[in-house]
Design a protein around this nucleic acid. Structure first.
Length: 193
DNA sequence: CTCGGGATTGAG
DNA sequence: TCAATCCCGAGC
């Protein structure tokens, strides 16, 4: 796993429909080379945040210092601190000046991981990701995504988690996850919508 | 400058 | 069911 540098997704993968990227990331491997180790987790749950209108998106208002990278070129990380204690990892999608990103919500541990990777806050802790990774290029080491090493998984979808404030956007089916996968996060087990 | 709140989590 | 915890961003 560490001997050969893994093949990795290129920028054009992220320069597409945010929903397509969110689905196509499922099954891919998130890789972080840090402190002489290679941490690897399979992406099993994502959420799409796309455009100016989506009230659940940080970019729905306008460009601000925090969300500015969402308006940048695809293939970069958007990492922010939530609730004063947890980091959330997103991948920027779509062309420059169009705000969009995919939130990574859960991983299946593959290598070098010894704590839970279920949930956006837990997976950043497990992968050693924090605000120092905000804006980094995710098409090359130390942080990148390797393509699926398996067939296309069966994909299920639901409303996004924790965005009840977003009005009609709260119920949009923009959360994607591997069907029947036990590594998918289950906050408050299927909360009502 | 002040202040309300959050793309969450773990404890009680 | 709720507190932790702090940065962000809206409004004055």
């Amino acid at each position: 796993m560490n001997k050969h540098r893994m093949h990795r997704l290129r920028r054009d993968f992220y320069d597409r429909s945010t929903l397509a990227v969110a689905k196509d990331l499922l099954g891919c491997l998130l890789v972080h080379e840090v402190a002489g180790k290679t941490l690897v987790g399979r992406i099993v749950e994502t959420e799409a945040y796309d455009g100016f209108d989506d009230r659940a998106s940080h970019a729905s208002r306008r460009k601000t210092p925090r969300n500015e990278v969402m308006f940048q070129e695809p293939g970069h990380a958007y990492v922010y601190l939530i609730y004063g204690m947890h980091h959330c990892l997103n991948f920027v999608t779509r062309e420059k000046d169009y705000p969009a990103a995919v939130l990574i919500r859960a991983l299946e541990p593959v290598a070098g991981i010894d704590v839970s990777t279920q949930g956006p806050g837990r997976l950043t802790r497990a992968m050693g990701i924090d605000r120092s990774h905000d804006r980094v290029d995710i098409t090359r080491p130390p942080l990148y995504v390797a393509p699926r090493d398996m067939g296309e998984p069966l994909i299920d979808c639901s409303a996004r988690i924790g965005v009840a404030y977003a009005g009609e956007w709260a119920s949009a089916l923009r959360r994607f996850f591997v069907k029947d996968c036990s590594w998918v996060s289950a906050p408050r087990s299927s909360r009502r919508q």
